[in-house]
């Protein structure tokens, strides 16, 4: 695990007497892509805004690159870039004009960088077209281009693939993965497109009604969402004996409710059911189970125990 880039300590935000964030404590490590998952109004954008400095926490604190005082955090923000809620672009300027404006603001002398970044996000050839005439996808790309201009160490993106066509989604995914691998960039990304997020991120932060429900790595998620055969029967002990003696497997778990999770023979359900049936076991339940990220998220925020 790399250096800690961001650490929040019980961040709480109350807006118009309504709690928006409640005791949010998360930690982001260098070179990883974090997917921030939550429903609309869960507090994703608020958390990103607080980190970026455009909103303030009511209680709690956070460290950015190991610095925690307001003045130090403000200085450390030079190392981050973000695109929150919608791409903040100047509609009356071209893509290149927008990048020039941000290059001046950040004091970057390299003019060639504008063309390089436009190429990186696939916006070459927009020439004199003003940003107000761009499609939503093109605006998203320009927003990402602006964020990448400074080669940030922490990139915060709120719904970056919103409005992109399928090819654009793949391109942005590949770009983010490459930035993470090649430049050790840490990325915090929120999206409602969970299947897409699953392909992009290395870690997940699940937020619901302002509270962090879970922070986990993709490996942990895969483990939680692992596919298995769920076996319910009248005689679990006998069933275990059949699995060990006949099917020669120990890759199973007996759950507290006496159902069995079998992680082998996922492609050969017939073999398992035949073996159990031939050994006189009466099945009450026999099905292939396992979650996608989407199901896992829904189960988690639904308050039910994940199975």
């Amino acid at each position: 695990m790399g250096e800690t880039i961001l650490k929040t300590n019980q961040l709480t935000k109350i807006y118009k007497k309504q709690p928006v964030l409640h005791d949010v404590s998360i930690e982001l490590k260098e070179g990883r892509i974090y997917g921030l998952i939550g429903e609309n109004g869960a507090g994703k954008s608020t958390l990103m805004k607080i980190i970026s400095g455009i909103s303030f926490q009511t209680e709690g604190s956070f460290e950015l690159f190991g610095k925690s005082s307001d003045k130090e955090i403000q200085q450390q923000r030079k190392r981050i870039a973000s695109m929150i809620e919608q791409p903040a672009i100047s509609p009356d300027m071209t893509a290149k004009g927008n990048l020039k404006y941000h290059r001046y603001m950040r004091g970057i002398p390299n003019e060639e960088l504008e063309d390089e970044i436009l190429q990186l996000v696939g916006l070459t050839g927009t020439n004199n077209k003003k940003a107000k005439h761009f499609s939503l996808g093109m605006k998203q790309r320009l927003g990402i281009a602006i964020a990448l201009l400074t080669n940030p160490e922490l990139l915060i993106l709120d719904e970056p693939v919103n409005g992109l066509d399928p090819q654009g989604v793949v391109e942005i995914r590949q770009l983010l993965t490459r930035l993470c691998e090649e430049r050790q960039m840490t990325i915090l990304i929120s999206s409602h497109n969970l299947p897409e997020l699953y392909l992009t991120t290395t870690d997940y932060i699940i937020i619901h009604k302002g509270k962090i429900m879970k922070q986990m790595t993709q490996q942990q998620l895969d483990e939680e969402c692992r596919h298995y055969i769920r076996i319910g029967c009248t005689a679990p002990e006998q069933c275990v004996h059949v699995l060990e003696a006949v099917l020669k497997t120990q890759n199973f778990q007996v759950m507290p409710n006496k159902t069995i999770k079998l992680y082998d023979f996922l492609e050969d359900l017939g073999d398992v059911s035949t073996a159990l049936f031939e050994n006189g076991i009466t099945l009450t339940e026999f099905s292939l189970q396992g979650d996608t990220l989407e199901n896992y998220f829904l189960t988690l925020i639904g308050g039910e125990q994940h199975v």
């Binding site: 400095g53 903040a88 603001m105």
Partner: peptide, 18 residues
């Protein structure tokens, strides 16, 4: 005002300007 409309006001703050 246009910076508030377009959210361009975010950029200098995120860039570390007071």
């Amino acid at each position: 005002c246009s910076d508030f409309d377009t959210k361009n006001i975010h950029h200098p703050i995120i860039s570390g300007f007071a």
